[in-house]
Simulated scan of single mutants.
Amino acid sequence: MNPAPVFRINKFAVPTQSRGEFLDFIVETQAVISAQPGFVRASMMEQYPGPGIFNFVALLEFSGPEAVDPIIAAIADYDRAQGIDRPAVMAGLGVKVDMGNYRALELT
Rank of each mutant, 00 (worst) to 15 (best):
N2T: 15
P3V: 03
A4I: 08
A4L: 12
P5L: 01
P5R: 06
P5Y: 10
V6F: 00
F7D: 10
R8Y: 00
R8S: 05
N10Q: 12
N10L: 11
K11E: 12
F12M: 05
A13S: 11
A13G: 06
V14H: 00
T16A: 15
Q17P: 12
R19C: 10
G20W: 01
F22Q: 03
F25D: 04
V27K: 10
A31N: 15
A31T: 14
I33K: 04
S34Y: 05
A35G: 03
Q36F: 11
Q36G: 05
P37S: 11
G38C: 10
R41T: 00
A42W: 09
S43I: 02
M44H: 06
E46I: 03
Q47L: 07
P49Q: 13
P49K: 11
G50C: 10
I53A: 14
I53Y: 14
F54Q: 09
N55V: 02
L59H: 04
L59K: 04
L59W: 03
G64Y: 08
V68T: 04
P70F: 02
I71L: 05
A73F: 08
A73V: 03
I75T: 09
R80T: 14
G83K: 02
G83H: 06
D85N: 14
D85S: 08
P87T: 07
P87S: 06
A88F: 02
V89N: 11
V89A: 01
M90R: 04
M90Q: 13
A91R: 05
A91M: 04
G92M: 00
G94Q: 09
K96M: 15
A104N: 13
A104R: 15
L107F: 11
L107Q: 06
T108D: 13
